[in-house]
Design a protein around this nucleic acid. Structure first.
Lengths: 160, 160
DNA sequence: GTATAGTTGACTAAATCATTCGGGAATAGT
DNA sequence: ACTATTCCCGAATGATTTAGTCAACTATAC
C-alpha cells in the first residue's frame, strides 16, 4: 500500500467520472481537461482500472468510461491498488524465514502499519468524496466523519 | 502527504529507537543491523528527523539517538512529514487562482483526501505501534482500535 | 467511410529511492 | 595526546517510478 501522486491522480479521475457519469460515458478527454491530467497518462491509468474491474469502457463516438460498480461500493483503496501495484519492501521477501531473536520486526511493522492504513482507505468510498466535493462546490462547510478520538499529540505546526 | 517506503523506513527506525532507548542513546549501526536498513541511508533520514526536532543526538562513544519527545507525542504523520518533504501536485501551484467553472476541483480533491489521510496518520502514535509490536512479540493477538464502522464495500480480494 | 474514442506498446526526461563512498567533527576512555 | 566511536555532511550512483509523448490499432455511431 503505497500512496503517491499516481494513486491520487487515479482517485481524482475516478471522482470526476463518478460526478459526470449520469448522462452516459465520460470521455478521457473531458477528464483530462477538467482535471488537467495528460490524456495519455489517463489512458494508462484507466487501462489498469478497467483490467481491475473498476470501470467499464464504451468504444466509438459517444463512448467513454463508466463506473463498473456504484460509487458507494468503490473505496479509495480499490483505486490505489489498481494503479499502484503493491511492492514488497520487507527485506525477507514476504517470507517468514527471517527469524533472529525478534522474527523480522521490519516485516511485522510493515504489515502492521500497512493494515492500519489499508483499513482506513478501504473505509473511504468514492461516493463520500463525491458528496464532499459537491458540498464544497456549494460553499457548505465540509464535515469529516469519524476522526479517531483525540489523544496526546505533538505540537508541531500542521503543514501537510 | 506521500506514503512511500522512505517514510516507512523512517517510521520503522523510529519505533526501533523508541523500543531500545531505555538504556541510553541508540546507535544507527544497531538500528541498521536490526532493521536491515543501510547505515548511510539511516544517517540521511535521522539528519532530517533531528532537524525537525523529533530526535536528539549524542556524539562520541556511547552516543546515538534519543526520541526528543515521548513516544505518545509523536505521530506517524510527524515522522513522514520530516523525511518526505511534501510536494505540491495541484496544477494550480497551491494558489486559488485557477477558477474556471468549478474552481480547480483537482485542488479541492487533493487537499480533501490529503486532509483525510493526514488526520488519520496524525492519530496514530509511535507509542501505539510500539505497544502493538511488543504484543506481537509475546504472541498476543493484535487488537486494532477504532476502525471506522463498516459500510457497503467492494468484493475485491484483499491483497495489500 | 469517416470521425470518435478506447487499446496497446514503445519510448523518454525528470524525479525519487536507496545505497555507497569519502571525508569531517565531537567526545569518552586510556 | 591518541584512538575508537559515533554523529554529521555532501557528492555520486544505479534502479525504479513518474508523468508524459508518440504512433498504430480496433470498435462503433452516424
Amino acid at each position: 500500500m503505497r500512496l503517491t501522486t499516481k494513486g491520487r491522480f487515479a482517485v481524482t479521475a475516478m471522482i470526476d467520472v463518478a460526478m459526470h457519469g449520469e448522462h452516459g460515458p465520460v470521455t478521457l478527454s473531458a477528464v483530462s481537461e477538467r482535471q488537467k491530467i495528460s490524456l495519455s497518462y489517463l489512458e494508462q491509468l484507466f487501462g489498469k482500472l478497467r483490467r481491475h474491474g473498476l470501470v467499464e469502457s464504451v468504444r466509438g463516438p459517444g463512448g467513454g468510461y463508466n463506473l463498473a460498480r456504484a460509487a458507494e461500493a468503490v473505496s479509495v483503496a480499490d483505486v490505489i491498488l489498481a494503479v499502484d501495484e503493491p511492492i514488497d519492501a520487507t527485506q525477507c521477501g514476504g517470507l517468514e524465514n527471517c527469524l533472529d531473536d525478534h522474527r523480522c520486526m521490519t516485516h511485522e511493522l510493515w504489515s502492521g502499519l500497512n493494515a492500519h492504513i489499508f483499513a482506513y482507505l478501504r473505509s473511504v468510498t468514492l461516493a463520500e468524496l463525491v458528496r464532499q466535493q459537491e458540498s464544497r462546490a456549494r460553499g457548505e462547510p465540509v464535515v469529516m466523519r469519524d476522526q479517531r478520538p483525540p489523544s496526546p499529540r505533538s505540537t508541531e505546526p500542521v503543514t501537510a
